[in-house]
């Protein structure tokens, strides 16, 4: 297949992927609780997107198209898990959440932009906690031991940070600065 695809296709694919990669990642991580699973799905998704890129209609919404493909992969992944162990999430639930994301796509993109500004404003200890939780994928107990806190205090800290971020995002979006 690669031989038959003109090189400017590869280039436009990369441009589109580059522009929407973060939004796509947020979507998959938002729907798949396990970070490792979400990363696997994302990798697979990018390959499927490239293989099916010939079917993408230029001028239509790339992210919406990519989300549709990602959703199928997420559901397939869930079904394969289901055969192995107890299904973590119900399919109908995933579909209804995915549909809500599609419906509010623009608003959620603005929130994502706002989040970046808000992350910059976080205090150092809060950034550190976010880094452990979301970058290193630490469990609450691990963060508790790294930061010399009880698990309860760690949990409250993370909730507080999420509340701060959430409030900042809402405020930023409402102020119209993103």
């Amino acid at each position: 297949m690669p031989e038959s695809v003109p090189s400017n296709d590869a280039e436009s694919y990369l441009r589109l992927l580059n522009a929407h990669e973060r939004s796509l990642a947020a979507y998959v991580h938002g729907l798949v609780p396990s970070m490792a699973d979400a990363d696997d799905i994302l990798q697979e998704c990018k390959i499927v997107l490239w293989k099916q890129f010939a079917e993408f209609e230029p001028g239509t919404h790339f992210l919406a198209w990519a989300r549709r493909i990602a959703l199928n992969l997420i559901l397939n992944h869930r079904r394969s898990l289901h055969r192995r162990a107890a299904a973590p999430i119900d399919e109908q639930f995933i579909r209804s959440v995915a549909c809500e994301i599609d419906r509010n796509s623009d608003h959620l993109e603005r929130r994502a932009e706002a989040l970046r500004l808000c992350l910059e404003k976080l205090s150092k200890p809060h950034r550190q906690a976010v880094f452990w939780r979301y970058f290193e994928d630490c469990e609450i107990a691990e963060i508790a031991s790294k930061s010399n806190r009880s698990e309860g205090a760690t949990y409250r800290l993370l909730s507080r940070i999420r509340q701060i971020l959430n409030d900042c995002v809402t405020k930023t979006v409402n102020a119209g600065t993103v």
Binding site: A25, R116, R162
Partner: peptide, 10 residues
């Protein structure tokens, strides 16, 4: 959920 997903994507 997207806040959570975005933090992971960032």
């Amino acid at each position: 959920a997207l806040l959570h997903g975005q933090l992971r994507a960032e």
